[in-house]
Structures are given as C-alpha cells and as structure tokens.
C-alpha cells in the first residue's frame, strides 16, 4: 500500500501490523509536565498517542500545544480536533500549525456538547461537522488548497482519522455512516469503547459485508474499568456508551480491591477476542487517567513489542 504521509501509525497499519494507539488528556493548567509524563508512560507500548481536545467540554491546555510537547519528546501524537469550538478559519489554521511542527496524524470529531463541561453558557460553533472536517483536511492535503479555493504553498501532510460509535442509535445507519466517513476521506477509524462485544461484532459483520474494512483501518476502542462504580457511571451517564449488565455483574462479583485488576483482565480478554474479528486493524486503548496500566494491557494482550517501521 502506498504510504502517503510521514505518520508512524500509517506505516504500522499499511505494513499489516495490528496497530496500538492510546490517549491522554492535557492538564487544566499551563504546566505541560503532566502530559509529557503520561506520554513517557506510554511511548514504548503504543504507536501513537491521541491528545484530546477539551474533552467533555472542560477547558484544558490545548490539544495542539500538548501534541507539540509530545513531538518535542520524540513521541508520535495524534491531534484530536473537535468542530465545537473553532470555525473553518481556525481549524484550517490549526491544521497548518500542527503540520508545521511535524504532527502527522489528526482525528476529526464533533465534540461533546458544551452543556457537559465547565462553561455551559458558552456559544458553540459547529461551522463544519466532523464529516466536513475530514473532507477539509483531505482537501488541504490532496488538493493543496484552502476551502476558500486559494493554494497552499506547502500543504499539510497528515494521516486523517475519524471516530465511529457502533453503539449509538439508530443502529441501522451505523455502517452507512462509516461508509460516509470513508467517502469523506477518513483513512483510519478509532471506535467508541467496546464493551458490548456481540454488538460490535455485528457492526463489523456489516462493515466487512460492504468491504469497508478494505478501505479504512478500524481500531477498536478499549477502556479498562477501574471499578464497578465506573462501569455503572459509564452505563448510566455517558452518552452513546453501551455497558452490558453482565460486565457490571462480573465486576460486582469481585472484592473492591480486586476490581481494577479484573477490569484490566476484561480489557485484555476483549482485545484477544476482537483480534480474531475480521476487519479489526488495531486497538485504541483509552485508559482514562490510568495511563500507567496501558503497558500491562498491551503486553498481556500479546501486542508487545511494537513493530519498528521505517
């Protein structure tokens, strides 16, 4: 497969390896030490690290700056960009800025509604939607033009991803929606956290039936549960999250001090099972404020050592 960018993730995927990515949230502070430390916890066990963009609409150190900090440490960041807070001028400007620092990957997202965050009275932008942000990034890269039509002297050369949530409704358009993101130009997909494995497999069947897995790299989202409380919270309060009752029961059946360990085991088992699913090209491990556990998960799931790519 033709390698189009300098992205390590692209090389890993196109060389046929199961890719592994992880994710870090920047601090609510001007001190970047936290994100740099998190990056170092992960660096030997993942191919790239997503940096979230004011996730859950809570104001944080910006994704772009955090990506630059990781890049300066020799790590491979994935710039998450939500369309909630910036119009097409700012989004294109930030894409150029990121490319100028050698950031090779971006993930196009809508973003959680601001009512969930620390500034519920703020305005939202949504000049573009996530689908159109994918189109924009591809247009800038492949056509070398701004949306307005002017030429970009040195176009940004990034590997462009999108999210997919097989568990959101209506289920019947979840495969067509992926097809739409591919048509828009998505090259890799990171999914919502997979807990309901049957439903994910059913979605993947539809994906494979249409041959979509041959047009995009699908990385299954994995988030280990730290406790039964977390599982119940995610089931109840996180939009678009499907946490089956059996998982909650399994964690409930374990003493409190062993629940975190059980959560890791569940995550490892999920990876083992999903590795066998046709069309799964890798895993996106989101250990929320629990980054130190990612190496253990990667090792126990047989995804270590990470491949070395040119």
């Amino acid at each position: 497969m033709e390698i189009k960018t300098a992205s390590k993730l692209e090389k890993v995927l196109k060389n046929g390896h199961m890719a592994v990515s992880s994710e870090c949230g920047p601090p609510r502070s001007s001190d970047a030490r936290g994100i740099i430390d998190k990056g170092h916890l992960l660096k030997n066990h993942v191919d790239c690290i997503n940096i979230t963009d004011n996730q859950t609409s809570v104001t944080r150190l910006c994704s772009l700056a955090a990506c630059i900090h990781l890049k300066n440490e020799g790590l491979e960041p994935v710039l998450q960009m939500v369309v909630r807070d910036r119009n097409r001028i700012a989004l294109q400007s930030d894409i150029l800025g990121a490319a100028s620092f050698g950031i090779n990957n971006m993930l196009c997202l809508s973003g959680d509604h601001q009512s969930f965050g620390d500034h519920p009275s703020s305005q939202n932008v949504f000049d573009l939607d996530s689908m159109q942000l994918i189109q924009t990034a591809r247009y800038m890269r492949d056509e070398g033009k701004f949306l307005g039509g002017d030429d970009i002297k040195k176009p940004p050369n990034m590997f462009i991803g999108a999210a997919a949530n097989p568990f959101a409704d209506p289920f019947k358009i979840r495969v067509p929606r992926l097809a739409k993101k591919i048509a828009a130009g998505a090259e890799f997909i990171q999914t919502q956290c997979v807990y309901n494995l049957e439903k994910f497999e059913k979605w993947m069947e539809g994906v494979v039936e249409r041959g979509l897995h041959e047009q995009v790299f699908i990385m299954a989202g994995i988030t280990p549960m730290r406790s039964v409380g977390m599982a119940k919270y995610m089931a109840r309060a996180v939009p678009g999250m499907d946490v089956p009752k059996e998982l909650i029961d399994r964690l409930s059946g374990v003493p409190k001090d062993k629940q975190a360990e059980e959560g890791i085991t569940i995550a490892v088992e999920a990876i083992e099972r999903l590795k066998q699913v046709k069309g799964v090209a890798g895993f996106h491990i989101m250990a929320i404020e629990w980054e130190e556990k990612v190496p253990e998960i990667v090792e126990r799931a047989g995804l270590y050592p990470r491949p070395v790519v040119e």
Partner: peptide, 20 residues
C-alpha cells in the same frame, strides 16, 4: 440538532434522544 450537524447523527444519539 444541538450541534447543528449536517451529516448526523453524532455518537451521542441514544434511543431517539439527544445526548444533552
């Protein structure tokens, strides 16, 4: 649509209701 998305729904659509 609370995100005025032209190519929806977003990942927050649950049982026909909006994430907010």
């Amino acid at each position: 649509c609370c995100k005025r998305i032209f190519n929806g729904p977003c990942g927050g659509s649950t049982n026909g209701k909006c994430e907010i």
